[in-house]
């Protein structure tokens, strides 16, 4: 199985647009899985015009304390990094579910085995087959109000990896923290989508720093090409030994496809934009 991830650092540069269009092209030839790992705001299903199906909860461990065994030694509170276990004056532990990251340190640390493993649902994953193509969308979605994003990203990634036989495309969230690195882990190729503005360049630098330190081959996709000078992008690309793989100009077709819930390569198959996506898909296919 080959894995190609689409990321970018800055939000709104066109990650999902690139992801759904490449997924649509690849799925004409072979079974393709697209994983939407922007679990805080997954929208690939909206861009593909489909309804999510096959829901499965993402559960993490939640400690339950058996007070008949608890000796109030306080070890669980000491090993808890997130402040989810608070000790009373007498050393009796209380659990605040919202703060718990489910790391299970307390479970392993308790010397009298007074902690049992309950579960807490942080979000859901979905697996949706497209009717007209060999494309399966796996989506992760965080429940509003939960703030531990990484277990949902990991769980959706694992479900996508289990589903994918030939090709897995991953669409990450914005940002450069570990929710992005968890999504990128194991990629054969990373496509970093950016735009020719100082903001795009700044965040491209951060994302290339991340992919370089993870040892991942990275291509840069310049979206909204033409809105500004490109020498700074070019400089960063060279500095990090990346490759500028495609330039996508601002186009009305992309906006139309975005609001019509259909990839531009399907809505306007003979447009110049579609040709750019097809050429990029060919190049990606060649290297993987």
């Amino acid at each position: 199985m080959k894995k190609v991830s689409i990321t970018g650092g800055k939000g709104g540069t066109g990650k999902s647009t690139v992801a759904v269009n490449l997924a649509s092209i690849f799925s004409e030839y072979e079974e393709t899985v697209l994983a939407d790992l922007d679990v805080e705001g997954p929208v690939d299903h909206i861009l593909l015009g489909i309804r999510l199906a096959n829901e499965s909860p993402v559960e993490i461990m939640l400690p339950f304390i058996d007070y008949s065994k608890c000796t109030s030694c306080g070890v669980c509170g000491k090993v808890c990094d997130t402040g989810a276990i608070v000790l009373s004056k007498e050393g009796k532990p209380f659990v605040f579910p919202r703060l718990c990251s489910g790391c299970r340190s307390c479970y392993f640390a308790c010397p009298v085995k007074a902690i049992s493993e309950g579960r807490r649902v942080l979000g859901y994953t979905y697996r949706t087959d497209l009717k007209y193509k060999k494309l399966t969308l796996v989506t992760g979605s965080l429940i509003e109000g939960e703030e531990h994003t990484s277990p949902v990203v990991l769980s959706a990634r694992l479900r996508a990896e289990k589903t994918a036989k030939n090709l897995l495309l991953v669409d990450t969230s914005a940002g450069t923290g570990n929710t992005v690195s968890i999504a990128l882990e194991g990629s054969d190729l990373v496509l970093a989508v950016t735009e020719p503005t100082p903001l795009g360049v700044h965040d491209l630098r951060m994302i290339l720093e991340l992919t370089n330190s993870m040892g991942l081959d990275t291509w840069v996709i310049l979206n909204r090409a033409g809105i500004g000078p490109e020498d700074e992008v070019q400089k960063v690309v060279e500095e990090y030994g990346a490759r500028l793989a495609a330039r996508i100009p601002y186009s009305k077709e992309i906006v139309k496809s975005y609001v019509n819930r259909k990839p531009v390569v399907d809505l306007f198959p003979s447009s110049d934009i579609s040709k750019i996506f097809r050429k990029l898909a060919d190049e990606v296919k060649e290297v993987i």
């Binding site: 909860p57 559960e59 339950f64 058996d66 049992s116 309950g118 649902v121 429940i143």
Partner: peptide, 14 residues
């Protein structure tokens, strides 16, 4: 208000 209600699954033995 949209109160925070965590979805919790209790262990059997507690």
């Amino acid at each position: 208000p949209e109160p925070y209600k965590p979805l919790i699954i209790r262990p059997d033995n507690i």
